[in-house]
């Protein structure tokens, strides 16, 4: 067993884990943070995306034991303190950037990482930075619009997104 200390969504925690525990399993099964989705479990889909020290990482592809001392942000950490949707989440809702919603937590976390580094990305940069996130429903157009809207650009698409 390994002793693990981590700050998850601003809260310090300590746990004893098996070496083989993946970050995704630790978040979901031990901390009950089931917003981090497991889509493929083979590093392909990005549904499990979280931030580790601010960087986008696929939680199904890292050992929790290798992350002792880091800060993790999950989708549960993206809402405003009063529980309302954070601005990226709100943009996804406004622009109809989700259908079934399974990929959405990962999309939101990748968006958060992108906008922290590049607050006004071009549409090309948005598409490039979402290459690790697969969506089976939307066809990506409205996801890209949502990211543009979340970055304060392309506001005009809000109306056209609602049919």
């Amino acid at each position: 067993m390994h002793k693990l200390t981590m700050v998850v969504n601003g809260q310090q925690m300590t746990a004893e884990i098996e070496a083989r525990t993946l970050l995704s399993g630790f978040l979901r099964d031990r901390l009950g943070l089931t917003g981090t989705h497991i889509g493929c479990d083979t590093s392909q889909c990005g549904a499990c995306m979280v931030l580790v020290n601010g960087q986008a990482v696929k939680a199904c592809s890292v050992l929790a034991a290798d992350l002792d001392g880091v800060e993790v942000t999950t989708i549960e950490g993206m809402a405003n303190p009063d529980g309302s949707l954070g601005h990226i989440q709100q943009a996804f809702q406004d622009c109809h950037g989700l259908q079934c919603g399974f990929c959405t937590p990962g999309m939101v976390m990748s968006t958060a990482a992108l906008l922290a580094e590049n607050p006004k990305p071009t549409e090309d940069e948005v598409r490039h930075s979402l290459e690790g996130n697969i969506c089976r429903c939307t066809g990506y157009q409205n996801i890209v619009r949502a990211v543009m809207a979340a970055s304060g650009q392309d506001q005009g698409t809000k109306a056209t997104a609602h049919v």
């Binding site: 990005g46 580790v52 990482v57 696929k58 890292v62 990748s110 690790g132 996130n133």
Partner: peptide, 9 residues
């Protein structure tokens, strides 16, 4: 290489 998450690890 890969995507941003692959490049971060």
């Amino acid at each position: 290489i890969g995507d941003p998450a692959v490049r971060n690890r």
